[in-house]
Design a protein around this nucleic acid. Structure first.
Lengths: 152, 152
DNA sequence: GCTTTGGGTAGAATATTTTTCTGTTTTTAA
DNA sequence: TTAAAAACAGAAAAATATTCTACCCAAAGC
């Protein structure tokens, strides 16, 4: 799918606030309500927009402790990678998990209540996964930027 | 604000899909439309729900290359930290930036088109920021999980 | 040159949803 | 136990989303 300048501007608006009415969007884009409506529907149909979600303030739900954890497996066999990834998907505390190149194999973003809950998570959940070689945890001191936007 | 079991279930539903109608939510929560409506409004008012956004497929908008970059400053003075953070906020490619404890000071999540665009970003943007000691980039090979949900 | 076709658009209509309103039930605290 | 506050339900009203019809305009073909 090809995106023109209007599509990109529309995507940016929806990345910032998806609760805007098509009327509001139409004013900002200098288009009719119908024109905006059909562009949005097309972006949804083509899966450019994958979903609409509510973002939650982690402090307000008592998940103030954010940790990034690097994980190294003992081997890089397809089998080991597959097992690890399947098990990670079961852990709700892990909001993000990426397979990365470099010294460590995976980078995890983990939301918990506090250090105690993190210890529980490490001891009873993460490190029970097979084939993990080593881990290194980085505790978040401050949040400079935590956006879901992708700049176009 | 105190959250009961219904609030948590509601938050989970909205974290997964914020386009559901209050009617749909009411069926899943066994409540009336009005009861759901008022709970949602309260969560918004209390900023438990911070915003509603559209999530974009990075591959569909030609930002397939995801990089995590660790940054170390030459010193940890308030001044240096402040300058760095202010400059990072200006860089659209950086979707996340956290101040972390450990060997490196910051962890950045960066969406770009490809390695060439990343090189451009490093040379012309990131490394032009004052007081940076060293950086280490981790390129993403695969995406196991990339959620915005916080498990409650 | 003229017509045809299709994509994008606009405005009006209809359908759906949100929001408000009123009254009731339940919970909380004195 | 009772008064006050909070939570809830159903209906009415307001706003919005969605559909429908028609228009415009550029490119392609006769």
């Amino acid at each position: 799918m090809k995106l023109d300048a209007i599509d990109r501007k529309l995507i940016n608006l929806l990345q910032k606030d998806s609760k805007q009415t098509t009327k509001q969007l139409s004013l900002q884009l200098d288009l009719s309500v119908t024109a905006v409506y059909e562009r949005v529907k097309k972006l949804e149909k083509e899966k450019v927009i994958s979903k609409y979600v509510a973002l939650i303030d982690n402090r307000k739900v008592d998940k103030s402790f954010l940790v990034f954890c690097h994980v190294k497996l003992i081997q890089h066999s397809r089998e080991y990678l597959s097992v690890f990834e399947r098990e990670i998907l079961k852990l709700d505390e892990v909001s993000e998990c990426f397979h990365i190149a470099g010294d460590y194999d995976y980078l995890l973003k983990i939301y918990v209540k506090d250090m105690e809950e993190y210890r529980e998570f490490m001891v009873n959940k993460l490190t029970t996964i097979k084939h993990i070689g080593s881990t290194q945890s980085s505790f978040t001191i401050g949040e400079v930027k935590n956006s879901t936007e992708i700049a176009l």
